[in-house]
Amino acid sequence: MSDAPDRDLLAAEYVLGTLEGDEADQAAHLLATDPAFADAVHAWQERLAPLAACVPAVEPPAEIWDRIEATTMPAQSATVIPIAFRRRLRLWQASTGVAMAIAASLAAFIVLRAPSPRVAVLAPMTGRVPVLLATAGSEGVLTVRPDGAITVPSGRDLELWALGKGETRPRSLGVLPVGGRRLVARLAPGTQLLVSLEPRGGSPTGQPTGPVLYGGQLTAVE
């Protein structure tokens, strides 16, 4: 009990990051073994963390996210095909304000599987597990149905977009309920289907205003 104030200051120095040698080892040992010390460290993290606001933010290079993805994604059996859409998506990004990092990861991680007629598998920008499956019939009916868990924050809607080959601006196909939707849209193979997060009722501007969450390419398959 008598060493409690000392322990608390040791926790403070641990969080501040100034400890070295034996003192650093002692703090690390206490953190792992003494719940009271861990609580003290926790409290000091709360006290000091606002200091980080003094440091200017620096946009991380795009490849850091790629590395994080590679480290944190479980191995997938689906084929991951890097698609040479970066340039077009960047043009699109430039015209819509969608973050380049998102466009880059979209280009890098679209998942194509080999299903029937004209199909797009839409996967999150953040992963490779398909969440939506789109099927375009010859009669111009596009069916989009969920193939995984989708959550939409309250007060927001998902919106479906088509980006045709050679086009730089996506065309809205309307709001996409999480349960999926059937709609009439004649889409050529090679069209990118994208899903963005928008205010309730869809983008007010006619172009995506929120993050593009999912994407995939419509592919003709015999």
């Binding site: 980080a52 440091v55 933010a57 620096v58 946009e59 991380p60 973050a99 993050p211």
Partner: peptide, 12 residues
């Protein structure tokens, strides 16, 4: 990903 977009620059 949303968390990364929000905090990536500050943490970096």
């Amino acid at each position: 990903r949303t968390l990364y977009d929000r905090w990536g620059a500050r943490l970096h």
